[in-house]
Amino acid sequence: MKILAVEDDALTLALLVSSLAEAGHDVEQAGDGHTGLRLACEAAHDVAIVDRMLPGIDGLELVRRLRATGVQTPVLFLTTMGGISDRVDGLEAGGDDYLVKPFAFAELLARVNALARRPPLGRIETVLDAAGIEMDLIRRRVSRAGRVVDLQPREFSLLEFLMRNAGQLVTRRQLLESVWGFHFDPKTNIVETHMSRLRAKLNGNGERDPIETVRGAGYVFHAQIP
């Protein structure tokens, strides 16, 4: 993927560029806010990694200007400012995720990958329909064959992720990351427990289960049930 890294610390920037390139990504770099803003507006990027404290204009202002011009590139803030208010400021400015220095590159890469998997805003659907299940994302309502399926928020998010990835194998790690926001394995059966509850609710009238368990690999949601 194409990544923009905006960081004024030369050593950190060099580490980001070399590590991301080694992971197979194409990286553009900038050492100040004005250059970062120009690069972000001139070309499309899958993800931008932006430091909060930048010369020229700071990271918050950079992202505010991006959003004001309609650029919706997912932004990961990378900063030493780790307070709750700092995180809130970053997200309210238009950032999508927040990682505090010092950081582990494995976590940064996982967060970048998660941001890149999000569908572009212009293509986000408001109703998902597969396997006879209709999910209204605006009204937060799920129904199957005319029967309302009452889901808890986490069950709703789990089903949404499965339906958006219908026909594809999704791993336990992907679910932990995308549904729970965990970038590590909590060593619990949280996924299995919620999956069991979701299936019981979806198939409460004896309907065929659209979710296939692939032993040792993950799950597949089938849009068409044979």
Rank of each mutant, 00 (worst) to 15 (best):
P120I: 02
V170N: 04
D86C: 12
F182I: 04
F184C: 03
G167R: 02
A48S: 06
L115F: 10
N203E: 08
T35N: 01
A5T: 14
A48D: 01
L76E: 03
C41H: 08
I225G: 07
W180R: 06
V6S: 03
V220H: 05
R140P: 02
R199M: 00
V6W: 04
L99S: 05
I57M: 14
T171C: 10
F161T: 06
A23D: 11
G24A: 12
K187G: 03
G94F: 03
L109T: 12
R197P: 02
L13N: 07
G206H: 13
T79Q: 01
V112D: 00
D51W: 14
A5F: 11
R141G: 00
V47G: 06
G122H: 09
M1E: 05
V220N: 04
H222Q: 09
D51L: 14
V170Y: 09
L176Y: 10
A48C: 12
L176I: 05
L115P: 11
T69N: 03
A10Y: 13
L66R: 06
D86E: 12
T35A: 08
A223D: 10
R197F: 05
L108E: 06
E212Q: 03
A223M: 03
G167W: 00
A116C: 14
L78C: 10
I190G: 05
A104Y: 13
V179W: 15
A43N: 07
M195F: 09
D9F: 08
V191L: 10
Q168L: 14
E22Q: 15
G31K: 13
M195A: 11
D58N: 14
D185T: 03
P74C: 06
K187E: 15
G56P: 12
N203F: 07
T188M: 04
L66A: 11
P153C: 02
L198A: 05
M1F: 07
L158P: 02
D97S: 04
R215G: 01
D89V: 10
L175C: 14
V149N: 01
T69S: 11
G82T: 08
I84V: 13
N189S: 13
F161N: 07
L169P: 12
L91K: 05
L20N: 10
L198P: 05
S157K: 15
D136I: 11
D97R: 04
T80R: 14
A21N: 09
H25Q: 07
E160I: 06
A48W: 01
V149S: 02
R154P: 00
M53I: 14
E7L: 15
Q174E: 15
T12F: 11
P226R: 00
G36Q: 06
P226M: 00
P120H: 02
M195V: 15
R65D: 09
G36H: 12
V148E: 08
L198R: 00
N189M: 06
A116Y: 07
Q152A: 12
G204F: 14
F103I: 05
D8V: 15
R173C: 07
H34I: 01
L99P: 08
A114Y: 03
